[in-house]
Design a protein around this nucleic acid. Structure first.
Lengths: 185, 185
DNA sequence: ATAAACTTTCAGTAATTTCTGAAAGTTTAT
DNA sequence: ATAAACTTTCAGAAATTACTGAAAGTTTAT
């Protein structure tokens, strides 16, 4: 399998960006290749196309599966395994989001909870704790909020996004319109 | 300057997480130290507290300034420079968000725009382009949306977050309430 | 102009991360 | 049971990233 110039530049770029998105170069490349190539593709084909060892390919595929970004696809009559994206672009974006939250936020939340519970040895520790509490609460809000958004599903989320600048205005209405009824708040 | 056990564990943790948040271990530690220590702190004190070289400290401070997370603080009568956080936790969180957007999303958007404009050499390139377009549009929405949220400022943003599950419901109202007036949409 | 008190830079080194490829493992067919 | 066609693992090598510390740079004071 030989990549077209278009595919090549997309794949190379996703490789470069990979490390910024939480995985390494080859993992980024493999993901791009699987997503952009509409046919299911085998590990060997991936290794050939990207010029990487079969072993590295195997590790990369394993990682992408742990992120739930790709899945196996059995082709009847073929012995080897093929791979395809785990869903459409929306699903993949959500998975990346969620997985990163797990790695980037959850461990910190957990530590912060513990640190906040200790009783402070002195004034400056008490100060530090109040900062840590602020950070904790912020992260908690962000986490809940992002879970909320995921729960909305693509259509509503898209609607919300399209709303853009309207959000601020909507919030002002909200107090007048929703307050009083037994709903949020 | 010697760090209390509380401060030490917070600083060490932010160091570990640093790489996941887009900077390296020492940069994460320096940031935590500056944020949690309420007094302005000098480069030398940082180097001593964290047991890192003065050179490394200088580089770390430079990086944090490029992220606009810390700023210099001149103490009258003192020759050396002191450092303090560039703002409250909200400001810092916004800055990290924005800076990461610049590094993680903007370059990709720019490449995607280019790739989408090329005319496809064949059917499978055309397919790939349509996927790339989906990705582009998604990233664009996310970007616009996050800029929108930043524009709201902390109070409104907090209100919106507290709204939580109400967002879905609010969206349903929205069509009925706002449509017709010459506003969004 | 000199020196003192600092900060920055950067070549070389150390630490960490990623990759290879050979060996071990698995599955299916005969 | 053996072999063929695959996949996974992992020790060591290669590549990348981070850190040190000495030298060069800057600023302020005298």
């Amino acid at each position: 399998m030989t990549m077209s110039p278009l595919l090549t530049s997309a794949v190379m770029h996703f490789g470069e960006m990979g490390s910024r998105w939480g995985f390494n170069r080859t993992v980024g490349q493999i993901l791009a290749l699987i997503v952009l190539h509409d046919e299911p593709i085998s590990a060997q084909e991936i290794a050939d196309a990207l010029n990487i060892s079969r072993g590295n390919t195997s590790m990369g595929l394993k990682e992408l599966q742990s992120w739930r970004l790709i899945k196996q696809h059995l082709v009847p009559g073929e012995r080897k395994e093929f791979f395809i994206p785990a869903g459409d672009i929306w699903v993949l974006a959500n998975r990346v989001f969620e997985e990163r939250r797990k790695r980037e936020i959850d461990p910190t939340m957990s530590l912060l909870r513990d640190l906040i519970l200790d009783n402070p040895a002195n004034q400056s520790d008490a100060n530090a704790q109040s900062k840590l509490t602020e950070i904790h609460d912020l992260l908690e809000s962000v986490t809940e909020w992002s879970q909320e958004l995921q729960g909305l599903g693509p259509e509503k989320l898209n609607k919300l996004m399209k709303l853009g600048a309207g959000v601020g205005r909507m919030l002002e209405f909200k107090d007048k319109l929703i307050t009083g009824k037994n709903t949020v708040n």
